[in-house]
């Protein structure tokens, strides 16, 4: 699966099957600080993500 982490600009290829919440935990991101999109659609934490999905992790933090 391709995971783009907007905050760091990283694009990762990882092998993962499970919920979006578990995915965030596996990459060390607090879900309070991000929204997740799958193929450009916002998904909730309980949704299952698959190897074929394109995931974007968008940071909600902006100012200082």
């Amino acid at each position: 699966m391709e995971v783009f982490i907007e905050k760091t600009g990283e694009r990762k290829q990882i092998s993962f099957n499970g919920t979006a919440k578990k995915l965030l935990e596996s990459i060390g991101v607090n879900y309070e600080e991000v929204i997740i999109t799958r193929n450009s659609e916002i998904i909730t934490l309980d949704e299952e993500v698959k190897e074929s999905d394109s995931i974007r992790v968008l940071s909600v933090v902006s100012g200082g």
Partner: peptide, 24 residues
Amino acid sequence: KEKEIMVYAYLKGLNVSFAECPFA
């Protein structure tokens, strides 16, 4: 919440910058 604003902006298709200030 900041997260709720982000979801709203995204759903409304507002062309906004989601960039974070480098000093933040």
